[in-house]
């Protein structure tokens, strides 16, 4: 790889961190998404209300503002709670955790909508057949809903993932050494911002292009048994 005025390895580390933040956030977003979707589709009014509140709030506030709120607000909250719990020192929020939590939380809301639509797209008769053959509700979900909703969820899921990867650029603002911040530092030191931000742009493009190929492959795999026209 290019030495990039000696900053190559540093940018590479930043790229790895960007990937780590993305994947960790994705995991949280998926867990929240599937819980949110099930809550929205559940018979319990209270669950539906909580999930609707969640998606409305999250989708209505800019990602950057949310991230700053979680980072600084979380900091304040923890440091006010600390003394109450008998801890006197000042607690710094780990920016990695703050970033991952915020991004996971934001994209959990988008995933909720994606997964909800995907679950609704699964043929009701097939679910009923599962029930009629003695499956428990959980077994119907695991054996029938889940494998079929993947196909319906993948296009929306893919979009969310691409936007999520790009959103990780925001974590540089709360001081996390992702590739954007590393590039910023290198640009400042060498006075060659265009070079470094171009490298960053290409890196993002690489990640997203590879993602698109993987998603295409998954879409084909999960379309097994669907008649092609």
């Amino acid at each position: 790889m290019l030495s990039l005025h000696g900053y190559g390895p540093s940018i590479f580390e930043g790229t790895l961190l960007t990937l780590e933040v993305s994947l960790a956030s994705l995991l949280i977003a998926m867990l929240l998404g599937i819980s949110g979707a099930l809550a929205k589709l559940s018979g319990a009014r209270s669950l539906r209300l909580v999930a609707t509140f969640y998606t409305t709030i999250i989708r209505g506030i800019p990602d950057l503002v949310l991230m700053l709120l979680v980072f600084y607000g979380g900091q304040m909250l923890i440091n006010q709670l600390g003394p109450l719990l008998g801890y006197d020192g000042y607690i710094d929020i780990n920016p990695f955790i703050a970033g991952v939590l915020t991004i996971g939380f934001i994209f959990g809301a988008y995933m909720t909508e994606t997964f909800r639509g995907a679950i609704l797209a699964v043929n009701k008769g097939q679910l009923e057949a599962g029930t009629a053959y003695g499956m428990s509700g959980f077994m119907v979900f695991r054996r029938i809903t889940l494998p079929q909703m993947v196909r319906h969820a993948l296009p929306g899921f893919g979009n969310n993932w691409l936007v999520l990867v790009k959103t990780t650029a925001l974590v540089s603002i709360i001081g996390l050494n992702d590739m954007v911040r590393k590039a910023g530092l290198a640009a400042g030191a060498t006075r060659k911002p265009f070079t470094f931000y171009l490298v960053v742009a290409v890196n993002y493009l690489l990640i997203t292009t590879i993602s698109i190929y993987i998603l295409k492959y998954l879409e084909r795999r999960y379309s097994v048994g669907v008649r092609e026209f």
């Binding site: 043929n123 008769g125 097939q126 009923e128 057949a129 599962g130 009629a132 053959y133 003695g134 054996r143 029938i144 494998p147 079929q148 196909r151 999960y222 097994v224 048994g225 669907v226």
Partner: peptide, 15 residues
């Protein structure tokens, strides 16, 4: 599980 059902729309599991 003791009462198998055959549906109008077949409802075979498509995957």
């Amino acid at each position: 599980a003791k009462l198998a059902m055959v549906f109008q729309q077949f409802n075979l599991w498509s995957h």
